[in-house]
């Protein structure tokens, strides 16, 4: 069972996703797959802050900035919250010297998430809405946005439920029974 949570920055998607996974975990182990790569003091502080805010909520945190499918063995049969696809996409795309083409990044991430989805009892995926400012950015950024847009569409098609958060409110935009 997979739920996709999409929203803008500060829209309350993390809080909703945590609440969501806690509701459906029903006593099974909850894993938190964190995709932010720590590369300076700012990201370190951010990760620390996120870790503290999850303290006491029963999550086991796994830091996995790329190749999220590789954690499957550790977490099989449990439940997981993965946050967030926008970081993961940037890490997969810009990890090497040459940026990866958006098609390859899309395929890699979708196949990883499919693996997780098939072996977990429940998976909540958090992603970002960065597509509505109308600005034409540099080529690399547009390529990144194309990748994230495509990934979001594919995740939404796979998901049993898609929820958009706005000002802390969850709005269900897809639900299959």
């Amino acid at each position: 069972m997979m739920i996709l949570v999409v929203g803008g920055s500060g829209s309350g998607k993390s809080a909703y996703a945590e609440e969501c996974i806690s509701r459906i975990a029903e006593g099974r182990q909850k894993y938190y797959i964190a995709t932010m790569r720590i590369f300076d003091d700012e990201t370190r502080v951010k990760v620390e802050k996120h870790r503290r805010s999850r303290n006491g909520k029963g999550f086991i945190t796994i830091e996995q900035p790329v190749s999220v499918g590789s954690v499957l063995k550790k977490i099989k049969g449990g439940t997981a919250l993965i946050e967030c696809i926008s970081n993961l996409t940037a890490n997969e795309m810009f990890g090497d010297e040459e940026p990866q083409p958006y098609e390859a990044v899309t395929e890699k991430i979708i196949s990883d998430i499919k693996k997780l989805d098939s072996e977990l009892e429940a998976l909540v995926v958090v992603t970002n809405n960065v597509f509505e400012d109308g600005i034409i950015y540099d080529k690399a950024t547009m390529e990144y946005m194309k990748a994230l847009g495509n990934i979001n569409r594919k995740l939404a098609a796979m998901a049993d439920k898609v929820v958009e958060t706005a000002a802390g409110n969850p709005v269900v935009i897809k639900e299959t029974n």
């Binding site: 597509f131 509505e132 194309k146 847009g149 979001n152 569409r153």
Partner: peptide
Amino acid sequence: IGGFAQGK
């Protein structure tokens, strides 16, 4: 209507 790359 919708954002960039959303599959409109």
